[in-house]
Structures are given as structure tokens and as C-alpha cells.
Design a protein around this nucleic acid. Structure first.
Lengths: 218, 218
DNA sequence: GTCTATAGCGAGATAGAC
DNA sequence: GTCTATCTCGCTATAGAC
């Protein structure tokens, strides 16, 4: 399982670089981050970044790829586990299998996962990166989820499933991006980093949306 | 010489600059866009940008502000119009009042509105801009919508309303960002710029979500 | 209002010593 | 593997001619 590993204070230099880059890319986006800033953040010499990862682009790709693999594994494992209990998988369990790994990532001690979630939101909503990186790294597992959804919602039009998946992806992105916007908006009533609460509301919200648009459950 | 060059179909120079900046910021984000690129895109001299708008930051603020005003007016007008028919306003009408102006903006001939929607998505999901710009320009009208939602869903906890509003905002952002991701994802079955279809599915999706999380309708 | 020219800075990348 | 040093480029911003 791709559980977030707690790291010792040091770590290898290349890992330090990836962590620092992840943190900065997540917050500022690709273009606002200079390799010099990454080097400073990682407390590493500038030239070392080039040595390990090549050009800036490749560093970004590597950062994005690193946890995408783990996230996909966790999601597919959750889906398989749900299927083992009940086949076809009930809608709510599918949504949970999709969202739960992110929630766990956010709740984990490894701050890197929180950063990665923000990075995911950035990439997902970017016209530049979105169609390229999301498709490259998440289309395979996504297809498995759409199949499961189709089985749970047999009356659904295929296109409607994709649209609803898309809405879920958007709600998830903004939520786990943890921008702090909802804190300001609600006057402190809601907290952007209160993932348990967010998760507990997002699941029924999304489930109800799928049911309404994609017809009755099996 | 320093004479205004004649241009067919061109507006004032400052408007040309704003349109060009909007288009580029929407697609590439703030940091990837250079003032030189804006000047090139607007077919205008670089120094003119500074003359009209000052520093790059201020140009960005101006671009963001320009249509925020209009969007807010349209939304509030739609809300008032719905209230004139029925008070309290039914949930679905509230959601429509919120989303419809964006859909109309997307469907309009003015390509600038499409760009602006993508810009909104960028700002909304950005940890840097989100809490600042969204709050500054959209919190007032947002409050009116939350009040209307509270009236339509009298059993709802206040915090739940904010969370659901947040999910709606996320789904909307990704959809109207028009990244093309869903095109790739669905293998061409859905089109990112088919806003009518997106809108027709997003409304029931969001309405059902609100109902499920925020209790039964009045 | 418009444009030329440039100051002043910091970026990405890499060659080569150790 | 690590770091020093540097090359080359393009950026923002602005002063000043027209």
C-alpha cells in the first residue's frame, strides 16, 4: 500500500529536492517557482537539481508522477476491496474508494501529501497541464471507476457518467486544494483543513448528484 | 511616430490590452505571462501597458475586476427576478441564478467571457490568489446567495451551506474552465465547450447535493 | 499618447574543478 | 556527488524623445 511514509529529518538529496519542489509548485504553480527557490528550500546547491532531474520541466513531471502512482494504487485497491464485499459495488462505496485515499493523504502526518493535493488541483484546473498530465497519469484508473459507476447506475448514459465524474473531480479539487477560501467566506465557521468534515459532506453531496443525473440505482 | 495607428475592429488601446491580458492570463496563469507577450498579443507597444495600468499586478487586478462587477450584477439580478416570482426562492432557481450568467457568458459571442471563466477557475483554485481576490470581489454577492439558500433549506446547518456552496464552486470552476480534459477523458464523447449540456447536468447534480446534505426542502 | 532605449536584475542551464 | 563560476537570455520598469 502506498501509505505516506514518515521521513527522517535528512533524507537523500534528490528526495529533499522533490519535496521542496512539490511544496513550492503546489503553492505557487509552475512558473512562479524558480529553481533557485527550490534549491534554497531544499537547502541544496542549485546545480544539483540539474544533475538529478535535468530541466525544470522534467523536475515538475517527476514531482507529479511520484505520488500519482501511489494514489492510483490506493484507489484501485480500495475499489477492489469494495468489490470483494459486494459486486456490483454500490455507488457510495465507489465514491468512497475514489475520495478516501485523498482524505487519508490529507490527514496523514506527511505534509507532502497535502502539498500534492494542492498540486493536483493546480494541474487539474490548468488548461496547459490538465489535458496532458491528468490524462497521462490518471486515465487508466479513471476508466476502472467509470466502469464501476456504469455497473452501479445501469440506466445511465455514458456521457452523463463522465460529466458527473467531472463535477466530482472539480468539487474534490477545490476542496483538497486547501486554499483557505472557505475560511474567509464562512467567517471562520468552516476550516479549509478540516478534511474529516469536508469528506463527510462531499460523499453524500456527490452520491446524490450521481443518482439524480444518472438515474436510479440498480 | 506617436500617432494612434488605425486598426479595423480594434477598440481603444487600453481595452485591447485588457482583452489580450485576459486571454493570456486565463490560459497560462499570472506568472507565465510576460508583459511583452501581452503587448505582442494586443499589438501594442510594451511601454503602453505601464502607461495605462502601472505594474503587472495592477494589470491583473484590473482584468479580474472588470467582469467580476458585471457577473455579480447579473447574478444578483437573476436572484432578484426569481424572488419576485416566489419568495422564498426554490432551491433550483437559486442555483440557476448562480450558474446561468456563467453559462450565458460562455455561450456568448464575446470570446472574452470564455477567457474570463477560465481565469476565474485559475484564481479560485489558487492558494495565492484565491483567498484574496475571490473574497475581495465575490464575498458580497455570495452572502446574498447563502441567505437565499438558508431560506430554501431551513433545516440546514450554516456550515453545511458553506460546504455545499464550496462544492458547487469547485464543480463550476472546473467545468467552465474549459480545459479540454473531459474531451480526452471521455474519448470525445463529451466536449468541454458544450456548455449547454454541462449546464443541464450540473444544475440537477448540484441541487441534489444540496438537498441531500442540507436536509429536506421547505 | 506613443514609442525608443536601456537600466538593473534574475532567470535556466552547464562546464569543469574537486 | 557536489559546488563554483559563468554564459546567455529575457524579464519588469521607466526615463525621455516625439
Amino acid at each position: 500500500m502506498g501509505r505516506p511514509r514518515s521521513r527522517d529529518g535528512g533524507g537523500n538529496r534528490d528526495t529533499l529536492i522533490l519535496d521542496a519542489a512539490e511544496r513550492l509548485f503546489a503553492y505557487h504553480g509552475y512558473d512562479a517557482v524558480t529553481l533557485r527557490a527550490v534549491a534554497r528550500e531544499a537547502d541544496v546547491d542549485l546545480a544539483l537539481i540539474g544533475y538529478y532531474f535535468g530541466a525544470k520541466q522534467k523536475l515538475f513531471d517527476t514531482v507529479f508522477q511520484r505520488r500519482a502512482r501511489i494514489l492510483n494504487e490506493d484507489r484501485l485497491a480500495a475499489l477492489a476491496s469494495a468489490r470483494a464485499e459486494c459486486d456490483p459495488i454500490p455507488l457510495e462505496r465507489i465514491i468512497e474508494a475514489y475520495l478516501r485515499p485523498l482524505e487519508m493523504a490529507q490527514e496523514s502526518e506527511d505534509q507532502g501529501w497535502r502539498n500534492y493535493c494542492a498540486l493536483l488541483a493546480y494541474v487539474n484546473t490548468s488548461p496547459v497541464w490538465g489535458p496532458v498530465l491528468m490524462s497521462r497519469h490518471f486515465d487508466g484508473p479513471m476508466e476502472a471507476f467509470v466502469e464501476a459507476l456504469a455497473a452501479a447506475l445501469p440506466r445511465a448514459e455514458r456521457a452523463d457518467l463522465y460529466w458527473c465524474y467531472h463535477f466530482m473531480s472539480g468539487a474534490m479539487s477545490l476542496t483538497f486544494a486547501n486554499t483557505g477560501r472557505i475560511n474567509v467566506m464562512s467567517g471562520g465557521l468552516c476550516r479549509s483543513d478540516d478534511f474529516q468534515t469536508a469528506y463527510d459532506r462531499m460523499i453524500p453531496f456527490v452520491v446524490a448528484g450521481f443518482e439524480r443525473v444518472c438515474g436510479p440505482l440498480k
